[in-house]
Design a protein around this nucleic acid. Structure first.
Length: 362
DNA sequence: AAATCGGGGTG
DNA sequence: CACCCAGATTT
C-alpha cells in the first residue's frame, strides 16, 4: 500500500532494484517492433507520442508512416501547408493535436535552432506538450529520468502499489508521477517508462490481465491480495447528449457540390463539411424553400440519402442527409466553395462527412 | 474540478 | 451498450 502525507510523499513498499531489473529485462525481450522505435530521433518520437494520445498503437502505425513520409523533418512540418497537415491527420481525431504540433514545431525552428529542446521546462511549454508527452519524449529520445504517466502507467502502478485514488481526477496523476520518480531506473529511463506502458498494453490489461505471464507479478500487491481486477478505481463520466442535423448535399452544374470550412475553434475546427442545419431550425418539408431563400437559388428534386449516425466522445450526431440539385448558387460565403468530387478528396473531411461523401461516389 | 475534443476496438 | 485508448486545453 502506498502511503502519502500532505505533501504527496509516496513510500514505495517494493524491492525497487529488483523491480527495475525485471521490468526492463522483460521489455528488452518482448517489446513490439514499432516504426517509431527504429531510432531515437526526437522529432519522430514526438510525432508518435502526439499520435498515440488516446489512440491505439494499431491505429497509429499507418498514419505515422504516411506523416513521416510527407513531413520527414521538423523543418518540413514547420513549413508545410496547414491544410495538407490536417489532411494527413484526417480520420485520426482530436485534430487540435496536429494544429498544436505544427505550432510547436514552428516555435522550435524559430527559438531553438530547429532542435527539440532537452530542457524539461522549455520543452513542456510548447503547444500541445503536456506532462505525459514531456516525460515521454525526454526519457525516450534523450534518456532523462522523467515520469511519463499515461492511462497504462496508472493502471499498472495502481495494481502493483495498490493505489486506490480515483484516476479520473486530474490531480491523481501527480501521485503516480511521484511514485515513478522513486521507481525509475536512471540507467535506462527509456526502457523503464516504455516497459510500464508496454506491460499495460500487453499484460496488465484493463480486463482479464495476464498475471500468470507478468514479469513483475511477485512485486504486485493487488495480485497478492487477488484484487487486481478491481483496479484502477475510476469514476464514470456523464453520458453524452444528441444533436440532429440536416446535411445539405447541394449539387450545382452536375458534379459540383457546396462544401464549407468549419470555424477555427471548437469541434472539428477547420475541417471541411457539407453544410449542416439543425433539425430544430427547419423541418424536412420546409427544407427546399429554406435553401432557395438562403442560397438565392432554385432547388429541384430532393433525394433522401442514407442517414448517418456518428458518435463522438461527448456528443452523438444524427444526420439526415438530403441531396438537392439546384441552379447556380448565389450568396456563397468566404468559407464556402463549390467543388467536384475529385477536388473534395483533397480536403480534410471528418469521418462523419466521409460517410456522406462515399455515398456520392456510388 | 469539470467539460471539451474523435474515432475505433472490445466484451 | 459501456468502457478504454502512449492526454491537453479550456472553462
Amino acid at each position: 500500500m502506498v502511503k502519502r502525507n500532505q505533501s504527496n510523499v509516496v513510500s514505495v513498499p517494493i524491492n525497487i532494484p529488483q523491480f527495475r531489473h525485471d521490468l526492463i529485462t522483460w521489455f528488452e525481450k518482448e517489446q513490439r517492433e514499432l516504426p517509431w522505435r527504429e531510432n531515437q530521433d526526437p522529432y519522430r518520437v514526438w510525432v508518435s507520442e502526439i499520435m498515440l494520445q488516446q489512440t491505439k498503437v494499431e491505429t497509429v502505425i499507418p498514419y505515422f508512416h504516411r506523416f513521416i513520409q510527407s513531413f520527414p523533418t521538423l523543418e518540413a512540418l514547420a513549413s508545410a501547408d496547414e491544410q495538407e497537415v490536417l489532411k494527413a491527420w484526417e480520420g485520426l481525431g482530436y485534430y487540435s493535436r496536429v494544429r498544436n504540433l505544427q505550432t510547436a514545431v514552428k516555435e522550435v525552428v524559430a527559438d531553438y535552432e530547429a532542435k527539440v529542446p532537452q530542457d524539461a521546462e522549455q520543452f513542456g511549454k510548447l503547444k500541445g506538450v503536456g506532462p505525459y508527452t514531456k516525460g515521454a519524449v525526454l526519457s525516450i529520445a534523450y534518456g532523462q529520468p522523467e515520469p511519463a504517466v499515461d492511462g497504462n502507467v496508472m493502471r499498472v502502478l495502481s495494481r502493483i502499489l495498490l493505489i486506490e485514488e480515483d484516476i479520473a481526477k486530474v490531480k491523481t496523476r501527480k501521485i503516480f508521477e511521484e511514485a515513478v520518480r522513486q521507481l525509475i531506473s536512471h540507467d535506462n529511463p527509456s526502457a523503464f517508462n516504455q516497459g510500464l506502458m508496454e506491460l499495460g498494453a500487453l499484460i496488465c490489461t484493463p480486463r482479464n490481465p495476464s498475471c500468470l505471464l507478468c514479469p513483475v507479478q511477485e512485486h504486485c500487491i493487488a495480485y497478492d491480495k487477488g484484487i487486481e481486477q478491481t483496479l484502477p478505481i475510476k469514476t464514470k463520466k456523464t453520458k453524452q447528449q444528441m444533436k440532429a442535423y440536416h446535411v445539405l448535399v447541394l449539387e450545382v452544374n452536375d458534379n459540383e457540390y457546396l462544401l464549407e470550412q468549419r470555424p477555427n475553434e471548437g469541434l472539428l475546427a477547420q475541417m471541411w463539411q457539407f453544410p449542416m442545419v439543425e433539425i430544430t431550425e427547419v423541418s424536412e418539408n420546409l427544407l427546399l424553400p429554406y435553401i432557395n431563400e438562403k442560397y438565392q437559388t432554385t432547388g429541384h428534386s430532393i433525394e433522401k440519402l442514407q442517414p448517418v449516425r456518428h458518435v463522438f466522445s461527448h456528443i452523438t450526431w444524427e444526420l439526415n442527409v438530403v441531396k438537392i440539385k439546384c441552379d447556380q448558387l448565389h450568396d456563397i460565403k468566404q468559407h464556402q466553395k463549390t467543388l467536384s468530387l475529385e477536388e473534395i478528396s483533397e480536403y480534410p473531411l471528418p469521418v462523419s462527412h466521409q460517410k456522406v461523401y462515399r455515398q456520392l461516389l456510388e
